[in-house]
């Protein structure tokens, strides 16, 4: 960008200072994340790291499920056949109760898209305040080929404004938050 462009941009940015809708006062990121997620009909669970497998198995056992390999091996179905899919999410965004799934491969987007129930597993330590924090982390050079923000279930109001869930994507979203390991 040449200097004149720069001058113009800097000046207009100086004049208008935007505040994130999150108030300055200290707030609990985890609490806000849960509150905002539930406000858009996302279910949330907070679990301890050592309980991941037992807790998640309760969700998937006996169902046509797809589970990300690294979480635990679960041999059942492809994402297209599954009714429920469990996948790690890279970040959470507290301001909107959003989970963020980044990927280089298309297939990595399918668990959060094809089955009726999507379970996103996110570390408490990866919950960020807002998109400013996320974009700061991602930078610009070489950002992931795909970044998906997922907030609540798939929905529509296209027929007489009736809210219906599960149009093309999942009708149900559960976020499993893995608590920070206890500090000594």
């Amino acid at each position: 960008m040449n200097s004149f462009d720069n001058i113009k941009r800097i000046t207009s940015e100086k004049n208008i200072r935007l505040r994130s809708p999150l108030k300055k006062r200290t707030y609990d990121k985890l609490q806000l994340f849960i509150k905002e997620a539930e406000a858009v009909s996302t279910e949330t669970m907070v679990i301890k790291r050592q309980n991941i497998e037992t807790e998640l198995k309760k969700l998937v056992n006996g169902k046509k499920a797809w589970v990300e390999q690294d979480i635990f091996p679960f041999d059942c179905c492809s994402t297209a056949e599954a009714d429920i899919a469990v996948q790690k999410a890279d970040f959470g965004i507290a301001e909107t109760g959003t989970v963020v799934v980044t990927s280089a491969l298309f297939s990595e987007q399918l668990p959060s898209l094809l089955p009726m129930h999507h379970v996103a597993v996110v570390n408490e330590s990866d919950i960020l305040r807002d998109t400013e924090e996320l974009f700061g982390k991602l930078g610009t050079a070489g950002i992931p080929h795909r970044i998906s923000f997922i907030t609540g279930p798939s929905k529509t109001a296209d027929i007489e404004l009736n809210l219906v869930k599960g149009v093309h994507g999942p009708g149900k979203l559960t976020i499993v938050i893995v608590e920070n390991d206890e500090k000594m």
Partner: peptide
């Protein structure tokens, strides 16, 4: 923040997709 609030009264839409090129594998 602006668009979903003004369009449908949501703080954010259900999905925001960022599509940036294609990976070598793909």
């Amino acid at each position: 923040r602006l668009l979903p609030r003004a369009a449908t009264g949501q703080k954010i839409s259900s999905y925001v997709s960022f599509l940036t090129g294609i990976s070598k594998e793909e």
